[in-house]
Amino acid sequence: MSDQQDAHVLEGALAPARNPKLFGHHAAEEFLARSYRSGKSHHAILIEGPQGIGKATLAFRFAHHVLSYPEPTDAPATLDDPDPASPISRQIASGASHNLLHLARPTDEKTGKVKSAITIDEVRRAGHFFSQTSGTGNWRIVIIDPADDLNRNAANAILKLLEEPPRRAMFLVLSHAPGKLLPTIRSRCQALKLSPLGDKDLSSALSFLGLPLDGGKTEEMVLGLSKGSVSQALKLLNYGGTEIIAAFDEVIASEGPKARKAMHRLADVLSGKDSEVIFGFFLDHLSDHLTGRARHAALAGDLHTADRQAKLVSDIAEKVATAQAYNLDRKQTILSILDSAR
């Protein structure tokens, strides 16, 4: 597996490039297989849906299918589980396939951390990739994972490739929030919407990863809080997500010195070493919490409170972005966020 793929994989998960199983998206698999077999498959497919539900795994499964059957008329009408021992699987898993390029946020060579965006330099790799002549005459497939991470220049560069795709080129464009993409990018793709996993499929996916749910309160909590996302479930189980939620609830419920102590305890955890994943989890949970407040107020007819809570979501996102851009002290940023959220 390439270093870039490894940098994006959660503890307990399998990189999509080497995951042989996909749960809960049979209709999408059938659509892709049949569309390809018909010879009328779109050159750019926008696979959209919440984070962690299997979009990237589906993209790599479909890429494996296409590269295994370069002539659409020879392809079966279903996507089978890839054989990890096959040459194509080994090449894809190691990032060594000459016919598949995975574009994701790169790792900063100096800091070893994943960068905040997919840059134009990454997209130039796609241009070079397509300029090379395939010795086998096979397809050339680019997986953009996710397109939400493209910065403005990179997005415009991808758009040019989508507008004039080379022969036998295919783009699998992933997005957690397609409404935020350039409308011109969306218009040049065929949309394929994936839904969050149902409880049964989520449980099966976790069992496959060696994390069977016990059928008790833990299962009820994980299924309820993960919202059909394997990545959210992994953050709850392997990254202390449940403890973060409990600590946040304590902050909200407490007053005076007790609240300040709870805020500092939570901020210490979220600003500690290697806390990027759990910090992101906290921000997602906080956004959901405030959005829920806004919705509840709106339903109660309190539009002033609803508007204030909705604005707070965007204000916090802006505050976090500013802190990251200027490398401000994270603990102080978190304390400020918690103050405003209370």
Rank of each mutant, 00 (worst) to 15 (best):
A13T: 07
H176L: 08
P20W: 04
D214L: 06
P165Q: 03
K55E: 02
K217T: 14
H98K: 14
P20H: 01
V277K: 05
H64C: 04
N156M: 04
A325M: 12
Q91V: 00
I158W: 02
K258N: 15
S41G: 10
T111V: 08
K193V: 08
I53F: 01
G241W: 00
S204M: 13
P70N: 13
A93M: 04
D274W: 03
I252S: 00
A205N: 09
L161K: 05
H43Q: 09
S187Y: 03
F31N: 06
Q132E: 09
P257D: 15
H8L: 13
A262F: 05
K115E: 07
N138P: 00
H98A: 13
P70M: 10
S94N: 12
R152C: 09
L162S: 03
S207H: 12
L58I: 04
Q232K: 02
A56T: 03
I47Y: 05
V222D: 02
V251S: 01
V142Y: 03
Q232D: 12
A169D: 09
K193M: 10
H264D: 15
S41V: 14
A259M: 08
S226A: 15
L101Q: 06
K217A: 15
S187Q: 06
H176Y: 08
L209F: 11
L335H: 12
G24C: 11
S314I: 10
K227L: 10
A253C: 08
V277L: 01
G240T: 01
S336K: 00
